[in-house]
């Protein structure tokens, strides 16, 4: 067992964990933050996406003990039922889901995508590596490709993110 502490959604937690515990399992099984979902558990689906120190990662492919002192944001930290994050509200408005299982990961990913575009990080479909990035539909879809939706709500997800991106632009 190894001791680790980190911040989740602004609250410090200290845990004593088997070294094998992934960040995903620490969040779900130990802190009972079940908004973050376990899909494939192999980094292929994106359902477990959380934001660590401002960057989106797959929480299934990292060990909890490797996050000593880190600041972690999960879907529970983005909004509340009474005060939705703008992306949560946009997903509702645009029906950006069917079963909803991938949604927390989609939204955490989308929050980080907007920050990545703002920071000027290019993508595979960015035509000019040395020009500012514009969040076109192609950009958005490429950047969200690590989040799979088996229900196929992609076009509504893209519309929800585009709306928020347009508002904050």
């Amino acid at each position: 067992m190894t001791r680790v502490f980190f911040d989740v959604n602004g609250e410090t937690h200290q845990l004593e964990l088997d070294t094998r515990t992934t960040l995903l399992d620490a969040l779900r099984e130990h802190l009972h933050l079940t908004g973050t979902k376990k899909g494939c558990d192999h980094g292929q689906c994106g359902a477990c996406t959380v934001i660590v120190d401002g960057r989106r990662i797959n929480s299934c492919l990292t060990l909890a003990v490797m996050h000593q002192g880190d600041e972690i944001t999960t879907i529970e930290g983005l909004g509340t039922p009474d005060g939705l994050h703008p992306l949560q509200a946009a997903f509702v408005e645009h029906d950006g889901y069917q079963c909803g299982y991938c949604t927390p990961g989609q939204i955490c990913s989308a929050v980080a995508v907007l920050a990545e575009v703002k920071a000027g990080i290019p993508s595979h479909v960015t035509a000019d590596l040395n020009a500012p990035v514009r969040l076109t539909n192609a950009e958005l879809r490429e950047r969200m490709s690590g989040n799979i939706c088996r229900c196929g709500a992609y076009s509504n997800i893209a519309e929800a993110i585009s709306e928020v991106a347009g508002r904050s632009a």
């Binding site: 980094g43 990662i57 797959n58 980080a112 290019p122 993508s123 960015t126 490709s145 690590g146 989040n147």
Partner: peptide, 29 residues
């Protein structure tokens, strides 16, 4: 590495290769 201004300007093939791989989440790690 893919986003570094010097890499984008002088070693475009490297930026392009990195951006063609994996997903945003994986490239962050």
């Amino acid at each position: 590495l893919a986003a570094d201004a010097r890499v984008r300007r002088d070693y475009g093939v490297l930026s392009r290769a990195l951006l063609a791989g994996a997903s945003g989440q994986l490239r962050n790690k």
